[in-house]
Simulated assay, not measured.
Amino acid sequence: MKEINRPVTDLNTFVRLCERLNGEKYLAVDTEFTRTRTYLPKLELIQIASAKLVFCVDVPCISDWSSLREVVNSSGTAVVLHSADQDLEALAQFDLLPLRILDSQIAAQLCGAQKLSYKNIVEEYLGIELAKDQTRSNWSKRPLSTEQIQYALDDVRYILPLFQVLHDQLQQMDRLSWLYEESARLLEQSDHGLTADNAWKSFSGGATLNFHDQQLAKQLLIWREKRAKLINRPRQWIMSDHQIADLVRNKPQSVQVTAHILGKKRHRIPNWVSSVHAMLSVETPNTHYPIWISWKSLNSDQKRQINELLVQINLFATEMELPASLLCTRQEAVEAVCGEFSARMFSGWRWEIVGSMIESWLEANDFKRVNLPKPLAPEFPK
């Protein structure tokens, strides 16, 4: 394998290297980025490896990405990444989302691996010990050190050999189609991205709020996501989760009190405080349907049903040497008992593997596999 041990900074060289990638069945890709002061990851380095070539590209130096875009959008090429979520988010900013991806971390999960970091899996399957001393390195500083460049190249050079081992093992286990399905789902999620309308789902404090306050919190989270993306600053800089919970619980009566809860930050402007305050005074519909569900809010029958479902899932997972969370997460079990059934659980290979068991469980507990209607969200000021 030919290695170019200095970052590519010249456009003509970059184009020639991309031409050498045409026709490859598999390409390995990794990225290095910074994200301490921005909403979006700031892509600094792209590492690429084929069966014959490994190199990295200094992103700020390249003005035209069309040659690489053509390669990753080829129907005959699958791009292999490890733990692809954030890499895909970074690549999407340059319109470099591949047409087809395969995730070696997902492949390792499906093979039954317990430790899923790149370092651990490379050591387990290839017997190679990688240094990870540059993990928290400053990738925006130039020039990059020799250690940084070597670390970056190591992060991509072993992906294809690793993937080949995992691919062969999955083929023997008759699970290769599972990898294709999971990777396609991951790519689809990345293509749609984390939008303002779905970012609220990861709010950690929602389950502690009453139903009315949950409605308010959801709208504040949507508003925060839009503002963070607009000015490209971390969402917690706009308004922290703790501040959102405080606001919806206390519902300050004046803009001044709202401003006091939000605190003084250089990126916040007065009309934002007014917008937040206005949202807190909008009436929400009466509802007994929670947006976030906590374990404490469940009754004893629901807790029993969840535990029964999880026991069955764990038995299946143990028998198949898979992580139980890969079949059904605890949160998915909670939502199922409360009438919300994850599309992930009821489609594809999961349904083929554990579908009959889940179907029997639903029937025994008098559930129907449909989504319950949710109340319409109230209108809030823009």
Rank of each mutant, 00 (worst) to 15 (best):
K2C: 07
R6F: 11
R6N: 09
P7T: 05
D10L: 05
D10R: 10
T13F: 00
V15K: 12
L17R: 05
C18K: 02
L21Y: 07
L27G: 05
A28V: 04
T34D: 11
T34M: 14
R35S: 07
K42E: 14
Q47E: 07
I48V: 15
A51T: 13
K52E: 15
K52W: 09
V54M: 06
C56E: 10
V59H: 04
D64S: 03
W65K: 01
S66V: 08
S66P: 05
E70P: 02
V72I: 09
V72Q: 01
S74F: 02
S74L: 03
S74R: 10
H82L: 02
S83L: 00
E89C: 09
E89I: 09
L96P: 08
I106F: 04
A113S: 14
Q114K: 15
E124W: 05
E129Y: 02
D133G: 05
T135S: 13
S137G: 08
S140W: 11
K141T: 11
P143H: 09
A152N: 02
L153S: 06
D154E: 09
Y158P: 00
P161G: 06
Q164K: 11
Q169E: 14
M173E: 11
L176N: 00
L176S: 08
W178E: 01
W178A: 03
S183P: 00
Q189G: 08
T195C: 08
A196N: 09
A196H: 10
A199K: 01
W200N: 06
F203Y: 15
S204N: 12
G205N: 05
D213G: 00
Q219W: 07
I222N: 07
R227D: 09
L230H: 13
N232V: 06
R235A: 10
R235Q: 02
R235C: 07
M239T: 06
S240F: 05
D241W: 02
H242Q: 15
H242L: 12
K251G: 05
K251L: 12
V257M: 13
R266E: 12
R268L: 13
R268V: 14
V273H: 04
S274C: 10
S274L: 13
S274Q: 15
S275L: 11
S275N: 12
L280V: 00
S281E: 11
W292F: 03
K296D: 14
I306S: 03
N307T: 12
L309G: 04
V334P: 07
G339Q: 02
G339E: 06
E340Q: 13
R344T: 12
M345L: 15
F346W: 14
W349G: 06
W351H: 10
I353G: 10
S356N: 13
L362V: 06
E363S: 14
N371L: 14
K374W: 10
